[in-house]
Every structure is written in structure tokens, then in C-alpha cells.
Design a binder for these strands. Structure first.
Lengths: 192, 192
DNA sequence: CAAAGCATGTAAGCAGTTACATGATTGT
DNA sequence: ACAATCATGTAACTGCTTACATGCTTTG
């Protein structure tokens, strides 16, 4: 997977400038791209070379010129072919899980604090996702089916954070129980 | 996040060769790294340069020499410092979700097939995860707490695929319902 | 008057991937 | 005979990231 097809996707909707695409990527919580210039402008140049998009320079007073990109038939065909090809498995890249694998080096307090910090970060992210979802799915919304698809993706994205939060909470509790079942020394340490 | 700290983690357990580490990464379903040579051997060379590991060449009859890497105190300190630092948010990179965002171009049949293919891939992956979990958490298992942590991570990894499958199933149903509520033409198309 | 927005682009670098290269040994 | 395992390493590449560079305009 690369950002290429996502850009073609946006352009299949309507023409955009690099700057506008950048904002879409940067603002989206479901598409996990930073929206950095190098990648977007670079990919657009490549797509243009490959004949998948055309561009038109629109000069304006008082503001910089805009380079408006539009999808070509070849671009449309490429997008459609990609849609039909098999998707990769989803992949949760969770720094935190790698850390946990070696976290037995840490004391109970420290581990507990770490999990707590992770939970609070997750809670914050969930609030943002939920707020975005609540504020409406203005997005494309050209057909009921498209709206359903966009909402499903955004919903699933939020759910991943929520599930992760629930899992972290359950883990914290399990660790607490293990702590009680364990040595009295550990229990005493608990009282600071 | 990079593989650097995961390698230090393994070495904090006991000394390993690059070849052995490679297998750990390649075989793990929870650590999402391919276990390619370039990255592992390269990182080991870097870690050695930085004084975080030592290496000892062990010559053997009939087999190639082994370069056995061991963690140093500096490496241990680095690992511990990293563990204490804040973790990033988890990030589900799902090709399939990006595809769905533009899948309204596809016909009902085609979309249904696509979701079905994704579900079957997920089911397969879940079987593998569950089998690995069932066959026991031999892994490090030096303390009950470490076992708990490793199991929790593996469990969460499997759950992500299961949740994704449930979500995809629910999405398929929603699309089906929308289809019935929609035009008769679509319904007729259904009968092939 | 400073910050944010509009708009394009480049430089440098990190993390990770597949594939190549070598060569003995063991299992099917 | 062929494939897999043991074992180390390199080359070439993709995808993505932060930060830099420019310069005008609008908003706070």
C-alpha cells in the first residue's frame, strides 16, 4: 500500500491541488498519513509522469498560483484495478506492545504508571475520533452507500482505540490481581 | 519506534546470534517485522558501534561461525530508559479501509466479493494466532508476570483480527440491508 | 506585530522490504 | 536430486518523516 491510490481516490471525486490533498490527509483520523509535502507533491509529479493525472496551473491575484490536478481515464482505470485486487491483512503497529514484552524489568509501580499514561493517551484520541464522527460525515456523501462506507471506516478506527483502552484496563487489573496473589514484599511496596 | 529496542530486549534475556534473532522476528505473529537480514544484521553492527552490545565469534566444525551478541550495561540502561519513555499511539494500517473509502465505484456484487475475500483472509490469520496461543506461551516465561504480559500481547494481537472480522461482517450486513431498501434494479441484479 | 493560512517545492534521512551472494550439511 | 537449515552479509529500493526555503495575505 502506498499513498498513490488514496490520492487517485480523492481525485476521482473532483480535482484538487496538492495543498488541498495535504490537508485531507493531515486532518483525517482514519487515514494514517502525516500529509507531508514531500510525499504528496512528489507522488503527484509521478502520477503526472505516468499519465494518471493532468494538471492545470491557475494563476490568481494576491495568492500563489494553484496547480489543480485532475484524474485521467488511465488514472481511473488504475484506481479501479487496485480496488479489485486483494487487500493486505491489517497491521496494528503498537509500540506499547513491544515495550510490554520487556516490561518485566520494571517495578509494579512503574509498570502501572506506564499503562495509565497509555490509557490516558488513548482516551484523548477516542474523544477526538468521537467528536469528528459526531460532527457529521460531511465527507464525500454522494450516495447513501458511500456515506455508509466512510462512516464504517471512521467507526472502526475509533473502535480500535476503544478496544485497546479496554484491553489495557483489563491488563492493569490482571497485573493488580497477580500482585495481590504474589509476595507480601510487593504488597508492602504498594503502600509507598 | 524501530527494531533496535526489540533486539536489545531479546538480548536482555540472553545472548543471541543475528540468525536466531531473525527467526524470532520472522516467526512472531505479535511483532510485526519481516525478520529480514539487512535490518537485523545492520542494526546489530550499529548497536555494537554504539557500545550497547558486545559480540564474540564462536567457530564450529561443519557449520558456519556464529557471531554471538550480548547486551552491555549501557545497552541495558538504554533499554530501561526506552521502556520508561512514553509510548506512541497504536496505529492500524489497513489497506482495506483505504480501499473501502473509494469502493462506491464498485457494483454490489463486486463489493460483496471483496469483503468476503477479506473476511476469509482474516479467518485464516485468526486460526494461526489461536493455534500459536493454544500451543502454549513457551516464550521467555521467567516470571508469572512476564508470562502474563506476553500472553496479553498475543491475545490482543489475535483480538484485533477477530474484531476486524466482526466489523467486516457487520458492514456486509449493513450493505445488504441498504441494498434491499434501495432500487428494485439492484435487487434484480442480485439474481444474476 | 506576530501567528496562521495559502501555495509550491527540496534536502536529508529513517525504517523497512525483497532479492542477491556464498557455501557447507542435513533431511526427504 | 532437491529442498531446507545453518549462518553472515550486501545492494537496491519503497514509503514515509521532519525540517528547510520562499513569499504574500489575512486574522487575532
Amino acid at each position: 500500500m502506498s499513498i498513490k491510490h488514496a490520492i487517485l481516490g480523492f481525485l476521482s471525486w473532483k480535482p484538487f491541488t496538492g495543498y488541498e490533498l495535504k490537508k485531507w490527509f493531515a486532518d483525517s483520523l482514519s487515514f494514517h498519513w502525516s500529509g507531508n509535502n514531500n510525499q504528496i507533491y512528489g507522488t503527484l509529479i509521478q502520477l503526472h509522469k505516468d499519465g494518471l493525472v493532468t494538471n492545470e496551473i491557475v494563476a490568481r491575484e494576491k495568492y500563489p498560483d494553484r496547480k489543480v490536478y485532475a484524474i485521467t481515464q488511465a488514472g481511473f482505470d488504475e484506481l479501479r484495478a487496485w480496488l479489485g485486487s486483494g487487500a493486505e491483512l491489517p497491521r496494528l503497529r503498537a509500540d506499547f506492545h513491544i515495550r510490554l514484552a520487556w516490561a518485566d524489568m520494571l517495578g509494579d509501580e512503574e509498570l502501572h504508571t506506564l499503562i495509565g499514561a497509555y490509557e490516558s493517551r488513548l482516551r484523548n484520541q477516542i474523544l477526538m475520533c468521537r467528536e469528528t464522527l459526531r460532527r457529521g460525515q460531511a465527507e464525500p456523501a454522494r450516495t447513501p452507500r458511500e456515506t455508509l462506507l466512510w462512516n464504517a471506516v471512521a467507526e472502526r478506527n475509533a473502535a480500535v482505540y476503544e478496544d485497546e483502552l479496554a484491553w489495557a484496563g483489563a491488563l492493569g487489573e490482571k497485573l493488580g490481581r497477580l500482585r495481590l496473589d504474589g509476595s507480601r514484599d510487593v504488597a508492602r511496596e504498594d503502600m509507598k
